[in-house]
Every structure is written in C-alpha cells, then in structure tokens.
Lab assay of single mutants.
Amino acid sequence: EIHIRTNGEEQARKVYKMLAKRNYDVKIEQHNGQWVVTAS
C-alpha cells in the first residue's frame, strides 16, 4: 500500500488520476487538513 501526502486538493487529484490509470485502487483522505492519497 502506498501513502502519498500532498499539499492540496489539486495535487491530490493529479496523483489520484495518475495512480488510477495504473489500475491501483485509490482513495483520497484528509488527515489534519492534509490530503493523503492511498493506493493499493
């Protein structure tokens, strides 16, 4: 499982799309105001 911390919604969405293209199961979560993308 991969966790990627991003500094904002826009970046989180870019990372989300990139990983989704590679057939990862991707989730975006917010932790303490930080956007974290989780891929498995």
Rank of each mutant, 00 (worst) to 15 (best):
H31E: 11
V36L: 10
H3L: 13
N23T: 04
H3C: 15
N32Q: 07
N7E: 09
I4S: 02
V26T: 03
A39Q: 03
N32S: 06
D25I: 13
L19N: 01
I4T: 02
M18D: 12
Q34P: 00
Q30E: 11
K27R: 10
E9G: 04
V26F: 01
W35H: 01
E29H: 07
K21G: 10
M18R: 06
N32R: 05
S40D: 04
V37T: 01
N23L: 09
H31W: 13
E1R: 13
H31Y: 12
L19S: 00
R5D: 03
Y24R: 06
Y24D: 03
G33H: 08
V36E: 04
I28S: 01
Q34H: 11
Y24G: 04
A39G: 07
W35A: 01
G8A: 09
E1D: 09
E1L: 14
T38S: 07
E1G: 09
W35G: 00
E1V: 14
K14E: 09
R5Y: 15
G8V: 11
V26Q: 00
R22W: 15
V15C: 15
N32V: 03
T6D: 01
D25G: 05
A20H: 06
R13T: 05
K27Y: 07
E10R: 12
E10P: 06
R5P: 05
S40E: 05
K14M: 08
I2P: 02
A12V: 01
V26M: 02
L19Q: 00
R13S: 04
I28Y: 03
R22S: 09
R13E: 05
V37D: 00
R5M: 12
Y24M: 10
L19I: 02
K27E: 04
V36Q: 05
H31M: 13
D25H: 13
Y24T: 04
H31R: 12
I2D: 01
Q30K: 11
E1P: 10
E29D: 06
D25W: 10
Q11T: 07
E1T: 14
N23C: 15
V15K: 03
N7Q: 10
D25E: 11
K27H: 07
E29S: 11
H3T: 14
V36A: 04
K21W: 06
K27Q: 07
K14S: 05
W35V: 01
R13D: 04
R13A: 04
N32M: 08
E1Q: 13
K27S: 07
H31L: 12
I28D: 00
A20K: 15
V26P: 05
T6V: 15
K27N: 05
K27F: 06
T6E: 02
E9R: 08
L19D: 01
Q11N: 06
A12Q: 01
H31F: 12
Y24N: 04
I4Q: 02
Q30M: 10
R13I: 08
R22H: 13
Q30Y: 14
R5V: 14
N7M: 09
Q34W: 13
M18N: 08
T38Q: 04
S40M: 09
R13L: 10
K14I: 09
D25T: 13
V37S: 00
A12P: 00
I28K: 01
K21A: 14
A39P: 02
M18E: 15
E10M: 10
Y16A: 15
T38K: 08
K17D: 15
A20E: 10
V36M: 06
V37N: 00
Y16N: 04
I4M: 04
N7W: 11
E29F: 14
V26H: 01
E10Q: 10
G8R: 12
A12S: 02
Y16L: 08
E9P: 11
E9W: 14
V15R: 03
L19R: 00
E10W: 12
I28W: 01
K21Q: 13
Y24V: 07
N7G: 07
H31P: 02
M18I: 11
E9N: 03
E10F: 07
I4H: 03
W35S: 00
A20S: 09
H31C: 04
N23I: 04
Q30V: 14
Q34A: 09
H3A: 08
V15Q: 02
E29R: 07
N7Y: 11
I2Y: 06
K21C: 15
E9A: 07
N32P: 02
K21V: 08
Y24P: 04
R5E: 06
I28T: 01
R5I: 14
E1I: 15
Y16W: 05
R13C: 15
K17H: 11
N23Q: 08
N23H: 14
N32F: 06
Q30H: 11
E10D: 09
G8Y: 13
L19E: 01
K17P: 04
V36Y: 13
S40Q: 08
Y16E: 11
W35P: 00
V36H: 07
Q11S: 08
V26N: 00
K27W: 07
D25Q: 13
M18H: 10
A39K: 03
A12G: 02
R5T: 12
H3R: 14
K14Y: 09
I4G: 01
G33M: 04
V26I: 05
V26S: 02
G33W: 02
Q11D: 10
Q11F: 12
K17A: 13
A39S: 05
E9V: 10
R13N: 06
V37G: 00
K14W: 13
R22E: 09
K21M: 12
T6S: 05
T38A: 04
T6P: 03
T6Q: 02
E29T: 11
D25A: 09
G8P: 01
K17Q: 14
Y16D: 05
E9T: 04
